[in-house]
Design a protein around this nucleic acid. Structure first.
Lengths: 339, 339
DNA sequence: CTGAAAGCGCTAACAT
DNA sequence: ATGTTAGCGCTTTCAG
């Protein structure tokens, strides 16, 4: 295994010079730098991250904590973050919680991450008070994707607005019986999104003078199967909804299926709208409120890397825009006169 | 930041003893061990991976190289691997190629990974000759998921058999015009699967005495959109197929949509079968050949960790079973008498 | 069963 | 512009 000493010996210089030359530090003649670079390349020299890390206290690695990699949304955010990190020479350590509370506890509680990474990206889960304290205690830059946490660096969409946009779209089409499929607003993995989205739904309905009907709110667990179950219930209601707003595209897709199973036509008998603009949304002709998924990963990585640069970091709160994408699962309810 | 010295001072012992005690090495009295453990816990001591790595030459980290994290299959394999690795105290460094040839080249060519990880997991992409040479040169345990590479540790399914099972299922139902949607068999990310699957399809057809028709083979790029495009072409054929075998569920789902767009009923007018048992397969009532996805990740991790234990490693080739899952997208072609 | 001391491979002051 | 000299925090002989 060739080390820095081998390179130094070869160019007949000290390891210090080699180190400086290779890292582009000032105080090395151009000629020396070239010679060192060339020699290092020829010898196949690769610096040891362990040694460099021990000497500098930096690992050039960031931890990405994600609830479920298998969910498209998270995978896409991870991908965005990975691109940005790699382009800046950072490695990405993946911590997949996969709904395991023990895993979650381990990752947050012990300072497992302290000496392992330079910064942390937390995806779409709101850390508990204790967990926030642990994160803070790490004394490392942390960026949270998908949560609204004053004082912390966050990147997210305006969930309240997104929900409002979706609900308003249905209202504008003439719907009044509008159901909501969301996720439980508490639990081991408590996102901010569920809370804000249901609030946006309610507020928009209220603003339109539509009375709130708790029977129209169902829990779809943010999965296709859950969305299907929830929609099935809603569609059994005596006074069934004419429109369903699902807080995620996956649940909306489940709702589509539930409608089909009952012989309901979409959008003639039932309108369905989601949030995300999932990979498969176009495929399902699903009307949705699109959010920049990949972009959230990139921006989060940028934020956290920015912090690594300057020492007086001001945790920024980035809110990325959403956009209504009208496809073919929403229309005026039957019997409504056209515009 | 509390280090091993702090713990040593506290228990009034040498750092050597503390190190031994904490790592469960022999030669430490039970009493001392307990006291050290307790003190370390109290002080919130966490060993520095950089320092330990420098001293031992081990990083307790494994690299996982994946073509696209956003594809469910890969994400699921990663999740399986992550669980296994974490349970054994290893960290997972994610390298997402995302179709970027430059990224791929960087990861494989330079010995970037040499001093960074103890072992490597390569998912579902067949390394080129050069890449294999680089991997070999690392001198670290490597396990490849989804490829059949004699001499290397691999875990995969029998792709030929899976394709054969799918094709035979269609044949058994009475289909004769059976189309195949696969992926290009060459390219930057050349999997083993495409090659083996198309071969299985052809062989099974041949064995049944069905003449080979190149017009019935289309490229679906292993994506939903690609599957839809490919199926659209196939269904425009004058003598169109009565059955479509897609080499992945995502392409099969695309085919389903293409059929629907043309007003074809599935399975009455067209049978469709895939491979994977994708998360959404059940939802689409898709008949498929299921493969153990999560399991492949776990087993791959086990293999590679096993290698880390013993020094005379015998690279094992694990083939996991597949299973035909008949749902409701396949049936006898119209006009065929029942059994 | 425990301790002293010598590194692991690199970086960072401080010299020159 | 380059070299010398200490470490970084842990593990590991080798002694005792």
């Amino acid at each position: 295994m060739t080390g820095i000493k081998d390179v130094a010996r070869e160019v007949e210089m000290s390891t210090a010079t080699v180190s400086r030359a290779l890292r582009g530090l000032p105080g090395v003649s151009e000629e020396t730098r070239d010679r060192v670079r060339e020699t290092a390349r020829r010898l196949g020299y690769v610096p040891s991250p362990s040694a460099a890390g021990l000497a500098t206290g930096q690992t050039r690695t960031v931890a990405v904590i994600v609830p479920f990699v298998t969910q498209w949304f998270f995978a896409a955010v991870v991908q965005g973050a990975e691109e940005e990190l790699r382009s800046r020479g950072y490695d990405l350590l993946l911590y997949n919680l996969a709904g395991d509370p023990a895993a979650r506890h381990r990752v947050f509680s012990t300072s497992l991450l302290t000496k392992r990474v330079d910064a942390i990206l937390v995806l779409s889960l709101t850390p508990s008070r204790d967990e926030l304290a642990s994160l803070e205690a790490l004394g490392k830059p942390v960026t949270i994707v998908g949560a609204d946490l004053p004082g912390w660096a966050t990147v997210r969409i305006d969930d309240h607005l997104a929900a409002s946009t979706a609900t308003q779209h249905l209202l504008d089409l003439g719907h009044r019986r509008i159901a909501y499929i969301g996720g439980s607003t508490e639990g081991a993995l408590d996102f901010t999104a569920p809370v804000e989205r249901v609030a946006g739904y309610r507020a928009t309905l209220a603003a339109a003078g539509v009375p709130h009907d708790p029977a129209l709110e169902a829990d779809g667990d943010f999965t296709v199967a859950g969305g299907m179950r929830a929609a099935a219930e809603l569609l059994e209601l005596a006074d069934r909804p004419t429109g369903i707003f699902a807080a995620s595209d996956e649940m909306a897709i489940g709702a589509l299926r539930a409608a089909r199973d009952r012989g309901l036509r979409v959008p003639e008998d039932l309108s369905v709208i989601g949030i995300d603009d999932h990979e498969m949304a176009d495929f399902f002709d699903l009307t949705t409120v699109a959010q920049p998924v990949h972009e959230q990963g990139r921006v989060a990585a940028q934020l956290v890397l920015g912090a690594l640069g300057s020492d007086d970091w001001d945790p920024e709160q980035v809110v990325l825009p959403t956009e209504l994408v009208v496809r073919r699962t929403t229309a005026r309810p039957c019997g409504t006169p056209g515009p």
